[in-house]
Design a protein around this nucleic acid. Structure first.
Length: 332
DNA sequence: GACCCGTGGGA
DNA sequence: TTCCCAAGGGT
């Protein structure tokens, strides 16, 4: 069953090939490890539509691992601004410097796994796609597709990996993995999969069950608390005071407006000019924007006209937009 | 294993 | 509007 399933999947991949900036078509030489690595890190929990333009800008600015390794920390974080999960950017720099130091990427999943920001999935994906190793790269797409093929409600990686390994061909195993991720993204979707279009329909136990979307079982969701904080906008001579956040934690290492401590209840007696409501992974935040006359903490003056170059994460970019639209209204 | 860590888009 | 969730990794 598995050999036939793999053949059907590869055929569908070839017939419906989507060209992406980091991908080689079947038959073409494997893409450079640098591009595979960078795209895989960017794609962690992030959609292809979001990543594509950001990937292009990134490789244009830093075409090689050596160039990236030599880049300034702040420049890389600034280029990453808006992509989220900023620990990825911090680990990206550490990884680039380690790889440049050793003279290139290691070629096995075991060695790749040792590098910062490269976990089990990413190590296997790079090894399979860039180096042709039969490494079972299990992401949520692969997990879902295989869980459905085998009608598994519970599908931990220890179960999925050997099932995927059985399907991986010796030649270009990366194509099979990318084929399965494409299938998961376009046909074997989490909700309302379009089984009538699926080349694996006749091989799929979940389809045969009549309720394919029930496999695997949905993740349990947790309640998301709501919090409040204040952010301070201090403007002088056409410039605004920015700070760099602590290296770890929320928005770690990123440029930002100075902020108060977070609280569970709204701040009282605050003369805020507006509120930015923002949703993070594990809590939502009301950021109350306060125009202040004195600077807070260590930082620098950023020209307001050049605020886009500051590399603000989305929360603070929205705060800046709020202030500027408010001042435009006052001027009008 | 639990928790932390962003953001944007689709249904 | 609300909810889901996307090529996960670190601690």
């Amino acid at each position: 069953m598995t050999a036939n399933t793999a053949a059907l999947l590869i055929q569908h991949y070839v017939d419906n090939f989507r060209r992406l900036p980091w991908r080689a078509a079947p038959g073409e030489p494997a893409p450079e490890p640098y591009r595979v690595w960078l795209s895989e890190v960017m794609l962690q929990q992030t959609t292809v539509a979001t990543v594509r333009p950001r990937f292009e800008r990134f490789v244009e600015r830093w075409p090689t691992i050596e160039a990236l390794a030599a880049a300034r920390h702040e420049d890389v974080l600034s280029e990453w601004a808006g992509l989220g999960y900023y620990a990825r950017a911090r680990n990206l720099i550490a990884c680039a410097r380690a790889v440049a130091e050793r003279g290139g990427f290691p070629s096995t999943s075991v060695e790749l796994r040792q590098l910062p920001g490269i976990g089990a999935y990413t190590a296997a994906a790079i090894a399979a796609i860039a180096f042709g190793e039969r490494a079972p790269a299990v992401d949520t797409n692969v997990q879902r597709v295989i869980a459905r093929l085998h009608r598994l409600r519970h599908a931990p990686r220890e179960i999925i990996e050997p099932l995927l390994l059985d399907m991986l061909p010796a030649a270009r195993p990366g194509d099979l993995i990318q084929a399965m991720m494409d299938l998961g993204a376009t046909i074997c979707r989490p909700r309302s999969p379009s089984c009538q279009e699926c080349p694996l329909r006749s091989e799929c136990a979940a389809f045969a069950s009549g309720a394919p979307a029930q496999f695997p079982a949905p993740k349990v969701k947790r309640v998301r608390p709501h919090r409040h904080a204040a952010a301070y906008w201090t403007e002088w001579n056409g410039q605004v005071w920015l700070v760099r956040r602590p290296a770890k934690g929320l928005l770690g290492g990123m440029a930002a407006l100075p902020t108060s401590e977070m609280t569970e209840t709204p701040p009282r007696n605050l003369n805020s000019i507006g509120v930015v409501r923002h949703v993070f992974t594990h809590f939502s935040l009301d950021l109350h924007i306060i125009v202040a006359s004195e600077t807070v903490g260590d930082g620098w003056w950023q020209p307001v006209a050049g605020i886009d170059e500051a590399g603000l994460p989305t929360l603070f970019r929205r705060a800046a937009e709020l202030v500027m639209s408010a001042s435009e209204r006052r001027a009008a």
